[in-house]
């Protein structure tokens, strides 16, 4: 099984019919925690697999950046989903989602410190020991930073990737969001990341609200994100790019047009 190729879309039950009718599709992602391993996968996913579409389980609740060791049952579930779907790889985030017995309900940023690098690397190693396939790590969009960062983002991410030997899942919308909200240049970050380690890219929509750019996944992909995608692919085009949409689904024609815009910006074949 090869890794993901071409333009993909995040498979969600609400758009399963739309996804099933994309003729050129070779790659989707599923939220790993939403897949039950008690029985067979949903029929729609089985049919995609029979068409040769790669399905990548995307975890959102491992909390690899949490100071407590990653929960073995959560790793076992991710591994089981990967087996169930014959996935070429899995992905998760460089983030934490719970602490002190409370669930945050979202991905939270880590301080960019050497202590946090150690925490992430230890948890990634624990996960890798149980996973049947490679893992790709995704840097998140954060609305705030910790007050005591020792490393800049490029150094923080590069250190984690080097020490874990993990692949990179780079979310172009997150790069845009962080640069916009911090007032930094996104191209500076792209120029310092190990783009040869990118397994695939994410793009998603967002919106300006209250002086911040929010990575909502419920709005259309904005022009600056498509421009950044083109800039990145001009430097080094990764094998695949995936559109994430998690609600307020537009009419099929709009979603197809958005997939086409992503393909054009990335220089990849259209799948619609």
């Amino acid at each position: 099984m090869t890794g993901p190729h071409g333009v993909g879309i995040g498979w969600r039950p609400e758009i399963a019919g739309f996804v099933a009718e994309l003729p050129g599709l070779r790659f989707v992602e599923v939220i790993a925690e939403a897949v039950s391993t008690a029985g067979p996968p949903p029929d729609a996913l089985v049919q995609l697999r029979e068409r040769g579409v790669a399905v990548v389980p995307h975890g959102v609740r491992l909390s690899l950046g949490g100071t407590e060791p990653v929960q073995p049952a959560r790793v076992a579930h991710l591994a089981a989903v990967a087996e169930l779907l014959a996935a070429p790889l899995v992905s998760e985030h460089i983030a934490f989602v719970r602490a002190g017995g409370l669930e945050a309900g979202h991905l939270l940023p880590l301080p960019r410190t050497r202590e946090a690098v150690d925490v992430v690397c230890a948890n990634v190693a624990r996960a890798q020991a149980e996973l049947p396939v490679p893992i790709a790590l995704e840097p998140i969009a954060a609305l705030f930073d910790w007050p005591d960062d020792e490393l800049d983002e490029a150094a923080f991410l590069s250190e984690i990737l080097t020490r874990t030997d993990a692949l990179l899942l780079l979310d172009v919308a997150n790069v845009h969001a962080n640069a916009r909200n911090r007032g930094t240049d996104p191209l500076t970050l792209l120029d310092r990341l190990p783009l040869d380690r990118v397994a695939y890219l994410h793009v998603a929509g967002g919106a300006e609200q209250g002086g911040f750019y929010h990575d909502t996944h419920t709005h259309p992909v904005c022009a600056p994100v498509l421009e950044l995608l083109a800039e990145l692919c001009a430097r080094r085009r990764p094998p695949a790019v995936l559109l994430e949409r998690d609600g307020h689904y537009p009419p099929a024609a709009e979603l197809r047009a958005e997939l086409d815009a992503v393909a054009t910006a990335a220089g990849l074949p259209t799948v619609t």
Partner: peptide
Amino acid sequence: LAVRQAELV
């Protein structure tokens, strides 16, 4: 870090 993550959440 454990305490500070808990305080943040």
